[in-house]
C-alpha cells in the first residue's frame, strides 16, 4: 500500500478523532470549534461526528475556558481546550499558571489535571502583533506544565495522542504555517512519547537545534549547505518541558557545533535555555561558541515584508551556519 500523505491539520484532527473514540472522558471545548470547525478548520467535522456534548462551542472567555478545562479534568474528564490564537492564552494565564500547573503540587500530589490546551502560534499570516506571537518560553518556564510543539504531520498526530493520554496539563502549540504542510502519516494508531527529541537529519559538522516551523526551514537550509559541503544535523526538540537534554548532548558530542534557532524574540526565548545547557554541560565538546538565531526584538508587524524580517528565514539559517563553520 502506498504511504498516506495528509496535512498537519488533518493529522491533528485524526488524533482528536481517535482519542474521542477511544475514551469517553475526552471532550473538546473552544471558541467556534463546533459547526464552524475552528478558526483554522482543525476540528472540522468533529461536531457532526461526536455531537455538541463532546465538541463544545464556548463563549469568548479564555480564563473560563482554561479554568473550566482544569476543573473538569480535576473531576475525571480529559479535556482538550482550543484557544483560537495562542496570544489569547494571556487572558487565561492565571488559570494555566497559578491553577492548572500548580494543583497537583500545591495539594500534596493528590490531584490529577489531565488536560491539553491546543493553540496556534507563529507569524507569517499578516495577522500582526496580537495574533502572531510565539510565547512557548512563558509556558516552558512553569514547573507543572508540559510544552509540546510538533514540526510535521506525523509528529503532530503521535504527540497529540500522547498529550491527551498524559495525566498532566500539556500545552500543545501548532504553528499556523504548518497547518497546510503535508507528510506521511500512518493510518493506524501510534504514540510518540513526550520529552523525546528527534534527529530529523543526521550530519557530522554542526547541529541546528530547533522546534516547530523552524524545523522545515532548517531542513531546507541543510540541503543548501550540503551543496557547499557542510553536513548539518537537525535536531527537533518537539517537547520543551520536559527537555531532552540527553539528545542535545549526544548530538553536540558528534558535531561539536550548535546553532539554536527559534522564532520568538531572541532575548529570553527558549533557545537561550538550550544554549545555556550546551554552554554548561557540553563546553568541552564545542569547537565554536554555541550561537542563537532568534526573532527580532519587536512585536510581530503587519506589513508582509517587515513580518518576514522578524523571524529567521532559510537564508538567515544558512548564513548563521556558514559563520559558525568559519569560526
Amino acid at each position: 500500500m502506498p504511504d498516506r500523505v495528509i496535512t498537519y491539520s488533518e493529522a491533528i484532527r485524526e488524533a482528536l478523532r481517535e482519542e474521542l473514540k477511544n475514551d469517553p472522558r475526552v471532550f473538546l471545548m473552544g471558541e467556534d470549534i463546533g459547526i464552524y470547525g475552528g478558526a483554522f478548520a482543525v476540528t472540522l467535522g468533529l461536531y457532526e461526528e461526536f455531537g455538541p456534548e463532546r465538541v463544545i462551542d464556548t463563549p469568548i472567555s479564555e480564563a473560563a475556558i482554561i479554568g473550566a478545562a482544569a476543573g473538569a479534568s480535576l473531576v475525571g474528564m480529559r479535556t482538550v481546550a482550543e484557544i483560537q490564537f495562542s496570544d489569547f492564552i494571556a487572558i487565561g494565564m492565571d488559570q494555566l499558571v497559578n491553577q492548572a500547573a500548580k494543583i497537583r503540587f500545591m495539594f500534596g500530589g493528590k490531584a490529577a489535571v489531565p488536560m491539553v490546551v491546543r493553540a496556534p502560534i507563529g507569524s507569517g499570516t499578516g495577522a500582526a502583533a496580537q495574533h502572531s506571537q510565539s510565547q512557548e518560553a512563558w509556558y516552558a518556564h512553569v514547573p507543572g506544565l508540559k510544552v509540546v510543539l510538533p514540526s510535521n504531520p506525523a509528529d503532530a498526530k503521535g504527540l497529540l495522542k500522547s498529550a491527551i493520554r498524559d495525566d498532566n496539563p500539556v500545552i500543545f502549540l501548532e504553528h499556523k504555517l504548518l497547518y497546510k504542510t503535508k507528510g506521511v502519516v500512518l493510518e493506524e494508531e501510534y504514540l510518540i512519547p513526550l520529552g523525546k527529541a528527534d534527529v530529523k537529519r543526521t550530519g557530522a559538522d554542526l547541529t541546528i537545534i530547533g522546534y516547530s516551523n523552524l524545523i522545515p526551514k532548517s531542513l531546507q537550509a541543510a540541503e543548501k549547505l550540503a551543496q557547499e559541503g557542510i553536513d548539518v544535523e537537525v535536531l527537533d526538540l518537539r517537547t520543551l518541558r520536559p527537555l531532552d537534554t540527553e539528545a542535545i548532548a549526544q548530538s553536540i558530542q558528534k558535531t561539536h557545533r550548535a546553532l539554536v534557532v527559534y522564532e520568538a524574540p531572541q532575548l529570553g526565548g527558549f533557545g537561550a535555555e538550550v544554549a545555556a545547557f550546551i554552554g554548561e554541560k557540553c563546553f568541552d565538546d564545542l569547537d565554536s561558541p554555541v550561537t542563537r538565531l532568534g526573532g527580532l526584538e519587536m512585536p510581530p508587524p503587519y506589513n508582509p515584508r517587515l513580518e518576514k524580517q522578524l523571524v529567521p528565514q532559510v537564508e538567515d539559517i544558512v548564513n548563521g551556519v556558514r559563520k559558525l563553520m568559519k569560526g
Binding site: 479554568g67 473550566a68 482544569a70 476543573g71 480535576l74 474528564m77 492565571d94 497559578n98 491553577q99 490531584a111
Partner: peptide
C-alpha cells in the same frame, strides 16, 4: 476541590467541575 490563593481564581475551576458533573 481546594482553597485558592488567587482572589476569584477558583471560580473557573469550580465551573469546570460542574461541567464535568
Amino acid at each position: 476541590l481546594g482553597a485558592n490563593g488567587i482572589v476569584g481564581g477558583g471560580i473557573p475551576i469550580a465551573t469546570g467541575a460542574a461541567l464535568g458533573s
